[in-house]
Amino acid sequence: MKKKQKRLVLRSVLLLVIALAVGYTLYNTVFKDTSGNVQVGDQAPNFELTTLNGEKVKLSDFKGKKGVFLNFWGTWCDPCKREMPYMEELYKQYRDKGIEILAVDVGEASISVSDFKKRLHLSFPILMDDSKDVTRLYGIGPIPTTLLINADGKIIEKTSDSLSKEKIEEYMKRIKP
């Protein structure tokens, strides 16, 4: 009888291990968005870029201090253009409440970007990713893509939607330290 029980335990364990492994694989392949290298829940990889005004900005500058609204965009992209005014509006409201917006332009000519900035009266820092190294590091596919990074440096949201004002405000509240 003992032997029989042992067999049952063995069988159960083996089947369980297989079920777990298969479940995990299925979860990863079919149900989880694995596009890009950086996923929700990860620590946001640090980087250093130069703004349009020539200042160097490190992501780690904000760690422990501010939540970062990290937006990847381009001047040619209409959805980006739509969300920019909302970002600007809310930036004014939230910049003193522990929120920083970093808008990373994915490899455009600085002339085009500064013209765009002037036209839309943007005041948040625009980072120039000339080589697109950071864009690739974050595995950004379509733009706009927005990542929410809380004050601990953890990514808590990633979206490629064109955002409404309400949505942006909701996001800002979420990363407020």
Partner: peptide, 18 residues
């Protein structure tokens, strides 16, 4: 400067992509 020029709304200039 526009990398891949297009005319938007019949008046404004823009770029199609990068």
């Amino acid at each position: 400067y526009y990398k891949n020029v297009k005319v938007e709304n019949n008046k404004e200039l823009g770029s199609k992509d990068n």
